[in-house]
């Protein structure tokens, strides 16, 4: 089994958003360790909302969902305003994953 990190940069109204969500679910179903890392407008889905609900549901399947702290700040989203399933994280984690040889894909 492999370690996958999917980087998602588009907002919840775009097709890529749901494609990444589906890919994360499929990878996890195949037994891979899977992390979804939200950057830029994707962090808008970190707030409790119907649009972000599918991402929040991913965590119940063992998928880690993280949101870039810098992108959150740019959009005025405070940690206290985030869905509890999603954690703020440093972009350093993406470089950590690359350095560790994980498969990192940008949707």
């Amino acid at each position: 089994m492999s370690n996958y990190m999917l980087i998602l940069s588009c907002g919840p109204s775009e097709g890529r958003f749901h494609r990444a969500e589906e890919m994360a679910r499929m990878l996890r179903n195949q037994g891979h360790e899977t992390t979804l890392f939200l950057v830029q407008n994707a962090t808008l889905a970190a707030r409790p909302s119907p649009a972000g609900k599918p991402l929040q549901d991913l965590t119940s399947q063992g998928i880690s969902v993280l949101a870039d702290e810098f992108s959150l700040k740019e959009r005025g989203i405070l940690p206290a305003q985030m869905a509890h399933e999603i954690s703020p994280a440093s972009l350093d984690l993406v470089v950590d994953a690359l350095a560790a040889g994980h498969k990192v894909l940008w949707e």
Partner: peptide, 19 residues
């Protein structure tokens, strides 16, 4: 695109690690 800015942030992090 903001992707470029995020990409350059990633490169900056890696550069600061001496990669």
């Amino acid at each position: 695109s903001s992707r470029t800015v995020t990409a350059l942030r990633l490169i900056d992090i890696a550069a600061r690690r001496g990669y």
